[in-house]
């Protein structure tokens, strides 16, 4: 392997991994507050990408596109929490296997997917570049070509993971999330507005997903069907990192992206197989992820 090749492959992997990291942070947050994952999160990503594309094509300035997408995503986050999650999690009894949220959020995502297909069709598209016009979207880094968006998404993942870390461990909001995550009823007794905390976690999830969607649009082609694919990879990332802290998600996400890239370089015939074998082996050794700690369910 030539050194510049390695750099090129690693950079590609890091860019992909950053997308997974952003999605994984969303999974992590909603899991913390509601013990539910949004199985429609991938479709959120697709919608953000299409909205971003529509905005850029309409000639809106970047900042307006970002704000517009953020507003739409936040609204969607509220909607899914209110209509697909709230009733289901509020009646789940401790211990009883209520997995209604898997299908309700999956159903919500399918509806979004259909809306995208109706609005834009079922084909593939590229979003126009966010930061440059014409040819100059490529920069050279250690002899390897990199798209500006690839750098941007890497930076976004790093900054947002850092911000999340600070918010979770240093802010009031973080304390509320931690309290709700620990126990809903205790949190309620402490005077925390549990409903609001849960709702906001869905809003933040949607915003993180929106950021990933905006950046992935110009990077990889987009299509109404793409959601589940990204969601599953984000899920693999969070399984490596563990449902415990944003640093783990960053490591898990980047690791999965790099493994994917490397295995496509080494043997592309089974390029999609190796990452999942590695995740499987990893989970045999560390069944609760990198930073997950094993809790005994002694009460």
């Amino acid at each position: 392997m030539i050194a510049t090749d390695l750099v090129q492959v690693l950079l590609s992997g890091i860019a992909l991994g950053s997308v997974y990291t952003l999605l994984a942070m969303g999974l992590f947050l909603t899991y913390a507050t509601s013990r539910a994952l949004n199985f429609g999160q991938g479709d959120f990503l697709a919608l953000a990408a299409f909205l971003g594309m529509a905005g850029m094509l309409a000639g809106m300035p970047l900042i307006a596109v970002v704000i517009g997408v953020a507003i739409c995503m936040a609204a969607l986050g509220m909607l899914i929490e209110r209509f697909a999650v709230r009733r289901i999690i509020s009646r789940s009894k401790a211990g009883a296997a209520h997995l209604g949220w898997i299908l309700s959020t999956l159903g919500f995502g399918m509806m979004l997917q259909n809306v995208i297909a109706l609005a834009w069709g079922k084909s593939r598209y590229y979003s126009p570049p966010l930061f440059s016009s014409g040819e100059k979207q490529l920069v050279s880094l250690f002899g390897a070509g990199v798209f500006l968006e690839e750098l941007a998404i890497g930076a976004a993942a790093l900054v947002l993971a850092g911000t999340m870390y600070v918010l979770l461990y240093r802010s009031d909001w973080g304390r509320r999330v931690a309290a709700v995550s620990f126990d809903r009823h205790t949190a309620m007794l402490l005077g925390i507005d549990v409903k609001r905390t849960v709702m906001w976690s869905y809003v933040v999830m949607a915003l993180l997903t929106g950021a990933a969607g905006l950046l992935v649009g110009p990077l990889s082609s987009i299509q109404s069907h793409m959601g589940m694919l990204f969601l599953l990879k984000a899920f693999a990332a969070i399984s490596i990192g563990g449902f415990t802290n944003p640093a783990g998600l960053l490591i898990g996400g980047i690791a999965f992206g790099v493994i994917e890239s490397l295995s496509n370089y080494v043997d592309s015939t089974f390029g999609d197989l190796y990452p999942f074998i590695i995740v499987l082996l990893f989970l045999i050794v560390r069944p609760m992820g990198l930073f997950g700690e094993r809790k005994t369910d002694v009460r």
Partner: peptide, 9 residues
């Protein structure tokens, strides 16, 4: 697969 840089390299 959403990025084929490695294969093209």
């Amino acid at each position: 697969v959403t990025d084929m840089t490695p294969q093209i390299l």
